[in-house]
Amino acid sequence: MIGLFTKIIQTGKRAEALGEAEHATELLGEQLGAAIRKKFQGSLAIREVDAGSCNGCELEIIAANNCYYDLERFGVHFVPSPRFADMLLVTGPVTRNMETALKMTYEATPNPKLVVAAGDCAINCGVFGKDHYAIAGSVADIIPVDAVIHGCPPTPTDIIRGILQAIEA
C-alpha cells in the first residue's frame, strides 16, 4: 500500500502540471463547463456508439477521459445506457449490420438529445467509402446530427471542442 500512495503523490495532478497544450484543453473544458451549467444543469451524460469504426476513434475518446484531459471534471461523463444520456457520440461509417442498432439507440435516448458525429468516417464514411454494399451511410444519413468532429481520428482536444460546439449550437 505504501508503494501505491507514494506513486499517487509522486505522480501528482497531471491535469494542472502541464504546459501550453494542456492550457488549451483547460480553456475548452471551462467553456464546456459553463455551457453545460446553462443547458444541462451542470451535467452532460454521453452515450458513445460505435456504429462501425475501426476502433481508432474509440481510443481517442477513451483518452479524453484520461488524467490529462479529464473530461469528467467539467460535468461531462459517459454513461452505459442511452436511456439516461443527453448526447450520443457516434463513430464510424454506419455499417449495414449496425444501422438498426443505431436507430434503436437514438430512439431510446430521451429528448432533448444531441448527436455528435466523431471522426471522418462518421462524417463521410472516410476510407471505407459511401457507396458500398456493407455501409449504410454516414451518421447523418441515418439519424439527425448536431455537430461533427473532423479527424482520423480526432484528438482528445478535438473531441472536447466538438462536444462544446454541439451544446452551443
Binding site: G52, G92, T95, N97, M98, F128, G129, H132, A134
Partner: peptide, 11 residues
C-alpha cells in the same frame, strides 16, 4: 459478431 463488417476485403 459481424456488426462492424465494412466490406473491407471488397474495398
Amino acid at each position: 459478431l459481424g456488426y462492424v463488417h465494412k466490406g473491407v476485403e471488397k474495398r
